[in-house]
Design a protein around this nucleic acid. Structure first.
Lengths: 196, 196
DNA sequence: GGCTTATGCTACGCTACCGTAGCGTACTAC
DNA sequence: GTAGTACGCTACGGTAGCGTAGCATAAGCC
C-alpha cells in the first residue's frame, strides 16, 4: 500500500503521491495529530472524498505516512569485512536520520507507536526493521572478534542507536560521515579494551 | 505552579494533587493527546470547573504534567572525584529514567516539545534541565583528564543520554546500577584510548 | 455556630475532525 | 470520438474537546 505501482492510471498515481507528500509534511511539522484528513486534503489539493477512495480511513493513511518517514538502510555487504560493514551501516543510518523527512520527524516516529490511538493500524515492529541491518552488523562484528564475542547485541544496538538519534534530534549536530565514523570508533574502542 | 505550597486550604491541595496525578497517569498512558480536561476530570473525580479554577487552560495543565514526569537528578558531589561523580550522575539518571512515571512517558516526553500545539506553554529547556548535572559532570571529567580535555560536551551528552534513553524505552531492559556502570565504563574506555 | 470560600453540577456555545452521499466534470484509454 | 473512471464539490450527521456561566452544596477557619 505504501508503494504505488507504475502502471496505473496517472490520475491515481498523481493523487496518491500528492496526498502522501502532504501527509508527510504535516507529520513532520506537527506529529500524528497534525495529520488530519481535512488538513491533508487542503495541503495536497486533493479532495477529501478522493483520499477516502484510496485509504480506508485516517489510520491507514497515517501508517503509510509513518513508513514514508523512515529511512531505508541496506543490508551490509558481507565481502568487506565485519568492521567496514559496521562502519557502512552506521554511516547509512546517520545519513538517513539526518535527512528530510526523517530528522524532523524523529521524535514523532519514536512516540507514535506508543500512542494507543495512533498506533492502531501500525505494525508493532515497523521501527525495528530500520535497525535490523545494524543488529546484523553488530552480530557479525561480535562473532568475528572485532568486539567481544559475548557482546549483548541489544545493548550494543541501544548504545549506537541512542547516540545516533540524540545527535539527530539536536539541530546543531551535523549528520555526516565524520560523525558516523566517530560513533563507530568510540563504540568499538569502548568494547575492545573491555576487561570482561 | 508545579509545586503546591503546604500552607494552603487543604481542599485546594487535595484538588491540585488529584488532578495532577490523574493528568500524569493519562499522559503516561496516551501522551499529551490523552490529557484532555474532560478525561482528567473524570479520572481524578475533580469537577472540570474546579480544574479551570487552578489552571488557566489545558496548556498550563499539560506543562505541569510534563514537569511532573521528569526525574530530578541532583548536582554531583564535588568531593568524590570526577570519575565517581560522573558514575553517580549516570546512576541517578538511569534509575530516574527507569522509574514510573518517567519510563513509560519517555517517548512522549521526547515528542511533546516538538509538537507545535502541545509545546505552547512549555519552556524550551525543561528537558535540558534534567541533563544539566550530567553535562556538568562531563565537563569536570574532561578538565580533570578522566576523558580527553578537548571532549565535546554536547557530543558526549548525546552519547550517554542516547544510550540511557534507548535502554529505558526497551521494556526488556533492567534500569539498575549494573547497567549504569556499564554505560559509564564503555563511555570512558572509548574516550580514553582515543588517538586524537 | 457563622462566615468565607472551594467545590460540584448542569447546561451551554463553539470548533475541529471523521467518514459518507450524491452529482456533475474532466481526464484517460482504446 | 466514445465509454469508463477518477476526481472535485457541497452538504451532511455524529462525536469529542475547549472553556464559561450560574447556582447550590459542602468543607474549612475563627
Amino acid at each position: 500500500m505504501s508503494q504505488t505501482p507504475v502502471d496505473v492510471d496517472p490520475r491515481v498515481r498523481r493523487s496518491r503521491e500528492a496526498v502522501l507528500a502532504a501527509s508527510v509534511a504535516l507529520f513532520v511539522a506537527g506529529g500524528p495529530r497534525a495529520v488530519t484528513v481535512d488538513a491533508v486534503s487542503e495541503e495536497s489539493g486533493v479532495a477529501k472524498t478522493t483520499i477516502y477512495r484510496h485509504w480506508r480511513d485516517r489510520a491507514h493513511l497515517l501508517a503509510d505516512t509513518y513508513r514514508a518517514c523512515l529511512p531505508v538502510v541496506p543490508v551490509p555487504d558481507d565481502g568487506r569485512g565485519p568492521q567496514e560493514a559496521l562502519r557502512d551501516v552506521v554511516r547509512c543510518l546517520v545519513r538517513g536520520m539526518g535527512q528530510e523527512p526523517t530528522r524532523p520527524a524523529l521524535p514523532h516516529l519514536i512516540a507514535t507507536p506508543l500512542d494507543p490511538v495512533e498506533s492502531r493500524a501500525l505494525p508493532a515492529d515497523v521501527m525495528d526493521q530500520t535497525f535490523a541491518p545494524l543488529v546484523l552488523s553488530i552480530q557479525r562484528a561480535a562473532s568475528s572478534g572485532v568486539i567481544p564475542p559475548d557482546t549483548d547485541a541489544m545493548e550494543a544496538k541501544h548504545q549506537l542507536v541512542g547516540f545516533i538519534i540524540m545527535s539527530a534530534i539536536d539541530p546543531a549536530c551535523a549528520m555526516d560521515d565524520v560523525l558516523a565514523d566517530r560513533i563507530t570508533d568510540l563504540f568499538i574502542r569502548g568494547r575492545q579494551g573491555q576487561g570482561q
